[in-house]
């Protein structure tokens, strides 16, 4: 599947992702500068992305733990925010469009 990625102040790019991996892993392995400081444990929120409205509703539901973390972000948007380490790539999500947030950029 393909993922369209917008990076703040750096424009857009498209990456190839294989199903079974998390979206965070796909971004990381494509060299996208995502912080992901806890490695995917739903514990740091530095893999926070905004999902395009066309795809947001297609994702598996958010867990309570994920919501708790997202709410702590300055860029939380209830209709768009997800932790990319909690979304599993799947061909049904082909074309998934998302944008990295200032809190998820690698420093």
């Amino acid at each position: 599947m393909k993922i369209k990625v917008a990076i703040p102040e750096r424009g857009e790019t498209e990456i190839e992702a294989r199903s079974g991996w998390t979206v965070m892993e796909a971004l990381r392995d494509a060299g996208i500068p995502i912080a992901a400081r806890c490695g995917g444990g739903c514990a740091c929120a530095s893999c926070h992305v905004h999902i395009d409205p066309a795809f947001f509703g297609k994702l598996a539901p958010v867990s309570e733990d994920e919501t708790d973390l997202l709410e702590s972000s300055d860029h939380y948007d209830v209709g768009a925010s997800r932790l990319s380490c909690q979304i599993i790539c799947d061909d049904a999500l082909d074309g998934l469009a998302l944008s990295l947030q200032p809190d998820s950029l690698e420093d």
Binding site: R28, D29, A36, R37, G39, G40, A43, C44
Partner: peptide
């Protein structure tokens, strides 16, 4: 603690498959 950062499970393509 907020903003916890670590590499306890490695990182990159080989990051611990059993981390969860």
């Amino acid at each position: 603690r907020k903003d916890t950062s670590h590499v306890t499970f490695g990182d990159g393509p080989h990051i611990c498959a059993g981390q969860h």
